[in-house]
Computed example of a mutant assay.
Amino acid sequence: MMSGLVLVSQVGLLALVVLLGLRMLALARSQPLTTNPFTKGHSAFQKPLRPARQMTAEDRTALYTQLHILAGLQERECRVNGIELKDAPEPVRSYAAAWLYGAACALCDQHSRHSEALEGMVSQIASRKTGIRQSHAVQAMATLTSSSALLACFRGGLEGAGFWQKHHHVSPRHSLYEAITTNAFI
């Protein structure tokens, strides 16, 4: 009885190995090799370049919803701690836009980062939540590296949104309030 079970298992495994080999052969024939790693100028370790993927309507809606929720939570935290973003000076609202842009970059897929569509979405939400003009929000995003304060706020948004995705809240260390109060004289 036991030897019969072992024999059936061995035959089954042999059949699976043969099926795997046939499947690999069929896949190899259906998808021809597009680049020859031995031709001049190509490396076997190079990844083929893929065109940038456009955000689908579903991706855009999900990201917009997440950003709106995150911006609302951060705007509320600022208000509770005494900073009314809509009444804040223009540089403070720029810091908030930079923070939100960092958060957006953390929440979207890598191919959509630093795109015009993402900047437009962030500037629209920043305008609603902070009262900053969309053109000023876009300018703050475009000039992140010109100001250490904007860059620090951007990084705070990256880290805050990353933390938010895992823990469903923003660490006080990476919050918008902390980024603003650390980088502005309020």
Score class of each variant (00 low, 15 high):
Leu63Cys: 04
Tyr64Val: 08
Tyr64Lys: 08
Gln66Leu: 11
Leu67Gln: 02
Leu67Ser: 04
Leu67Val: 09
Leu67Asp: 02
Ile69Glu: 11
Ala71Tyr: 00
Gly72Ser: 08
Leu73Trp: 05
Leu73Phe: 10
Glu75Trp: 07
Arg76Asn: 14
Glu77Gly: 08
Glu77Ala: 14
Cys78Ala: 14
Cys78Arg: 00
Cys78Tyr: 02
Cys78Thr: 08
Arg79Ile: 10
Val80Tyr: 07
Val80Ser: 09
Asn81Arg: 12
Asn81Asp: 11
Ile83Glu: 02
Glu84Asp: 15
Ala88Leu: 05
Pro89Lys: 13
Pro89His: 13
Glu90Tyr: 04
Pro91Gly: 13
Pro91Gln: 14
Val92Pro: 00
Arg93Ser: 09
Arg93Ile: 10
Ser94Ile: 06
Ser94Pro: 02
Ala96Pro: 00
Ala96His: 01
Ala98Val: 10
Ala98Gly: 08
Ala98Leu: 06
Trp99Ser: 06
Leu100Cys: 03
Tyr101Pro: 01
Ala103His: 01
Ala104Phe: 01
Cys105Lys: 05
Ala106Leu: 05
Ala106Asn: 06
Ala106His: 03
Leu107Met: 08
Cys108Arg: 03
His111Gly: 15
His111Val: 12
His111Phe: 14
Ser112Thr: 13
Arg113His: 07
Arg113Asn: 08
His114Trp: 09
Ser115Ile: 07
Ser115Gly: 07
Ser115Val: 07
Ser115Lys: 03
Ser115His: 04
Glu116Gly: 11
Ala117Val: 11
Glu119Ala: 14
Gly120Ser: 12
Val122Met: 02
Ser123Ile: 10
Gln124Ala: 15
Gln124His: 13
Ile125Val: 14
Ile125Ser: 02
Ile125Trp: 00
Ser127Met: 13
Arg128Leu: 15
Arg128Met: 13
Lys129Trp: 07
Thr130Asp: 03
Gly131His: 06
Gly131Arg: 04
Ile132Ala: 10
Ile132Phe: 03
His136Gln: 15
Ala137Pro: 00
Val138Lys: 05
Gln139Thr: 12
Ala140Tyr: 01
Ala140Thr: 07
Met141Val: 09
Ala142Met: 10
Ala142Tyr: 04
Thr143Gln: 14
Leu144Ser: 07
Thr145Glu: 14
Thr145Gly: 12
Thr145Pro: 01
Ser146Ile: 09
Ser146Lys: 12
Ser147Cys: 09
Ala149Gly: 08
Leu150Lys: 03
Leu151Trp: 06
Leu151Gln: 12
Ala152Lys: 04
Ala152Val: 06
Cys153Trp: 00
Phe154Ile: 06
Phe154Gly: 04
Arg155Asp: 14
Arg155Phe: 08
Gly157Lys: 01
Gly157Ile: 06
Glu159Cys: 07
Ala161Val: 04
Gly162Glu: 12
Phe163Met: 09
Trp164Ile: 09
Lys166Gly: 04
Lys166Phe: 07
His167Gln: 13
His167Leu: 10
His168Phe: 12
